[in-house]
């Protein structure tokens, strides 16, 4: 992690976490009761014929829970990119630090919850007792039946746990030679290039000087769409390699074009990776000098 990373992270400020997100359920009495039971809250306002929801439930109405791969952690677009950047920089752990809520209108059973959330700020690199990382602040407006009901500022620290990843060495560099230089030029231009044999048309990957099928030395580089599925994978727990923080998923990805490549599967807890899982390409800058083509689940189910 260097300051250049923060420059990149800052470009995510103001970008959305969720646009017109919808709470999975309308405000409802059972969830209110479960909350009150858990908290030991016996305030009569939250029971009876005309209850209101405990105001502190505000965020709970917006969470995806276990809906979709990765549950509440998986969100499409810039927020996931930001989290992927932080993870690639070794900030694999997360802890919530601040929650500031304002309640503008009571929530009652039947209220339909919608919300918009933005990345409000990303701090410079900070070293805390837990480890070194970045504080991310999100700001959410929650509406009930379209009417602003509350605001919610949430801050968490995404960090490399102290003593484990704080001084992690850089990831190994790719070995670039005449045979594969075109591939890495493609990565630099954010294109995933595979080779196609000019003689027989067979696509191939990784890059090789000749066709393994017909032997022709003539080929053309063609961009892959970036869509693929997990053909096989392994979750690394041991042995540890200094540049990597286990557990992490290494996948054999079958691209839509029919070739397979090895990469990391990020943006999902490793134990949730499955054979056949649809994935999409994402170029991740892992440090100042290295961009890698990684893959993340294609499912956009959770908001």
């Amino acid at each position: 992690m260097r300051d250049d990373l923060h420059d990149l992270l800052k470009t995510y400020e103001g970008r959305p976490v969720a646009v017109s997100g919808r709470g999975p359920d309308p405000v409802n009495s059972p969830m209110i009761r479960h909350w009150c039971e858990a908290m030991g809250d016996t305030d009569p306002a939250y029971t009876g014929p005309d209850p209101v929801a405990p105001p502190t439930m505000l965020q709970a109405w917006t969470l995806a829970g276990l809906g979709g791969p990765g549950g509440a952690q998986v969100r499409p677009g810039p927020y996931r990119e930001l989290m992927a950047l932080l993870e690639a920089a070794g900030c694999t752990a997360i802890v919530a630090t601040d929650c500031e809520q304002e309640y503008l209108r009571p929530l009652r059973p039947g209220d339909v919850i919608t919300f918009d959330s933005v990345i409000a700020s990303v701090s410079p690199r900070k070293t805390t007792r837990l480890g070194t990382g970045h504080f991310v602040t999100t700001r959410t407006e929650i509406r009930a039946n379209g009417e602003l009901a509350g605001t919610h500022l949430f801050r968490f620290l995404k960090y490399a746990p102290a003593g484990r990843a704080g001084d992690r060495p850089a990831r190994p560099r790719p070995v670039i030679n005449r045979d594969n230089a075109g591939f890495w030029e493609g990565v630099a231009a954010r294109e995933l290039l595979i080779q196609r044999c000019d003689a027989c048309g067979r696509p191939r990957f990784p890059w090789l000087p000749g066709c393994g099928d017909c032997g022709s030395p003539d080929w053309t580089a063609v961009p892959a769409s970036g869509a693929g599925t997990v053909f096989s994978y392994v979750v690394m727990h041991h042995p540890p390699f200094p540049a990597f923080e286990p557990p992490y998923a290494v996948g054999l990805i079958e691209l839509a074009e029919g070739v397979r490549m090895i990469s990391n599967i990020v943006g999902v807890e490793p134990e949730r990776v499955r054979v056949g899982m649809p994935v999409v390409l994402e170029f991740v800058r892992v440090d100042d000098d290295l961009v890698l083509p990684l893959f993340r689940p294609a499912d956009e189910g959770a908001v």
Partner: peptide, 15 residues
């Protein structure tokens, strides 16, 4: 989790 702490703080005040 932070939401439970938030809920307990709210409960404490209204209690």
């Amino acid at each position: 989790n932070i939401l439970t702490t938030n809920g307990l703080v709210g409960r404490y005040i209204t209690d």
